[in-house]
Design a protein around this nucleic acid. Structure first.
Length: 493
RNA sequence: CGGGGUGUAGCGCAGUUGGUAGCGCACUUGGUUUGGGACCAAGGGGUCGUCAGUUCGAGCCUGGCCACCCCGACCA
């Protein structure tokens, strides 16, 4: 059994960091709490971006870009919003530096105090305010609605504690910001985008998620309702993988965004916002990887197949090269991405290990024996198994295998989650389940006070109230007060 | 921000009592190798995180600062 499944939290963190480093995905930067996403990591992020972007476009959205810097007064216009983000904002106070000191030894660069800004600028922790300030000018009539815009951007949140991908001071994300004429339409949009996120998580990332809504205390600052998808990592901790917010008219009122309806009466617009971030990279790593390194689902693997040649002589090398070229043509004809690892310096064994570390789903080995037999050695990353198969019909076989890896990863993750889902009815059962890790479905009396007490005692939070939740009579595990449905508890990242 | 730990070559580390820096991997060159992380030989690479202090002399001692890791607190 993989040691990660049995390990303590500290070992799991070490394991996670090792994979990020050894698979060459990212590194710590010289800037506090920030990371450098390396080409290997960025390539995976790009795969995610492309898939998500297509899904956004397919649901009628367009991309735009808004400023990085937000005047402090904008941020403070929505009271709950600023209260939620005030603790973690990077603030720009000056716009100029100057050099002081006459000699090279004493010379230094300091802030020019004469360049102090009259109003400080906040580096966006999220863009609702700057966007709604802009939407005021864009929305005049019901004919301007709905306004369905997405932005790919970076944001900065000055977190106390950072973890590569999961919580960095700066991170990359997309944020959708939509405006609608009616409440119903905005809620529909919020739910639709949650659906896009859960489809993406399950179909592309091969990660099963629970769709639900947040309790009031976990709600986005400034939202009326926060919908989320929650995933379970291999160590039994939950990870919020995406959120979609119904913002009501909060931002429309804060920024005076009104439209003339068909009867020429002014109304405030209804809003949504939704986002996923590079945190999904963390989710991907923690969901599928094993002790040999990263495991990528084929749909997100920048390279799906790698061919490793095994040869002694130049003649063999040339013959294998020809065979590889032929295979690559066939695979590319089926839109399968393939690389031929013809590096001379590294030996095959080294390459095998390296490609496993980086998570390439399928590896082909071609050597003299294969040339003689018309065969190829085909290895799959998820199960670490390999078999010798005929060269004939290889492309079809690989296409099938890629599909199988994609669905197997999902199935494996789903089975693991089910095995780590506990239904409890008493406090004792709840505590026992917490020791095992995973999602805990339990009754809760619906009060923030109880939620807070449970969090204080156990560090477990309510991850969400599942959508379409089964209604059943029960008693709160803490207070014994009546409850009509189970909510999902877990310790979370 | 509190507690604990770390910072020495690209990476991982050693460095004794304070005496002017070393090992493994990686890198360069040559040769032998190549079906699961090769071997031999010869090389190159360091303001020891940073700033100050103590000292004839600091990688080592003292203090400040910075960054990172782990546990908390915080955190759509």
């Amino acid at each position: 059994m993989s040691k990660i499944l049995t390990s303590r939290s500290q070992d799991y963190s070490q394991w996670y960091n090792d994979i990020v480093m050894k698979a060459d995905l990212a590194d710590h930067s010289a800037v506090r709490g920030c990371m450098v996403i390396k080409p290997s990591g960025y390539a995976v992020w790009e795969m995610m971006q492309q898939a998500l972007d297509k899904m956004f476009k397919d649901t009628g959205h367009v991309n735009a870009y808004f400023p990085l810097l937000i005047p402090k007064s904008f941020l403070s216009k929505e009271a709950k919003h600023v209260a939620g983000f005030a603790q973690e904002c990077a603030v720009v106070t000056h716009h100029r530096l100057k050099t002081v000191g006459d000699t090279p030894e004493t010379r230094q660069v300091v802030v020019d105090e004469t360049s102090k800004l009259e109003e400080e600028l906040i580096i966006r922790p999220t863009s609702e305010t700057i966007i709604w300030n802009t939407y005021r000018d864009w929305i005049k009539s019901h004919r301007d609605l709905p306004l369905l815009i997405n932005q790919w951007a970076n944001v900065v949140r000055w977190e106390m504690r950072t973890r590569l991908f999961l919580r960095t001071a700066e991170f990359l994300w997309q944020e959708g910001h939509t405006a609608h004429a009616t409440k119903a339409e905005a809620i529909e949009e919020t739910e639709k985008m949650l659906g896009v996120y859960s489809d993406f998580a399950e179909q592309f990332m091969a990660i099963p998620v629970i769709r639900g809504i947040k309790t009031e205390s976990e709600r986005f600052a400034g939202a009326e309702e926060t919908y989320c998808i929650e995933a379970l990592m291999q160590d039994g901790k939950a990870l919020q993988a995406g959120t979609s917010h119904f913002l009501g008219q909060n931002f429309a009122k804060a920024f005076e965004v009104k439209f003339a309806n068909s009867e020429n009466k002014l109304e405030y617009v209804w809003a949504t916002s939704w986002g996923v971030s590079t945190r999904l990279m963390g989710a991907l790593i923690m969901s599928h990887s094993d002790d040999n390194g990263l495991v990528l689902p084929p749909k997100l693997a920048p390279t799906q197949v790698v061919i490793v040649p095994i040869f002694k002589t130049d003649e063999e090398r040339a013959a294998i090269g020809e065979a590889a070229e032929k295979i690559m043509l066939e695979l590319r004809a089926k839109n399968i991405t393939v690389k031929f690892d013809k590096r001379d310096k590294e030996r095959p064994g080294y390459k095998f290990a390296e490609h496993e570390l980086r998570g390439i789903p399928v590896r082909l080995g071609i050597g003299p024996k294969d040339l003689a037999n018309g065969s190829v050695e085909m290895a799959r990353r998820d199960t670490l198994t390999k078999e010798v198969v005929p060269m004939d019909g290889l492309a079809d076989r690989i296409a099938t295998m890629l599909e199988d890896i994609q669905s197997s990863l999902y199935k494996r993750a789903l089975e693991r989650r089910e095995a780590m889902s506990h239904y409890v009815n008493t406090w004792e059962e709840f505590e026992a389940a917490l020791d095992k890790g995973g999602f805990i479905f339990a009754h809760w009396d619906g009060t923030a006070a109880t939620e807070a007490k449970i969090k204080e005692r156990t560090k477990a939070t309510i991850r969400c109230i599942p959508l379409n939740n089964k209604q059943e009579e029960g008693k709160c595990i803490l207070t014994g007060a009546p409850s009509k449905e189970r909510v999902v508890f877990a310790r979370a990242y």
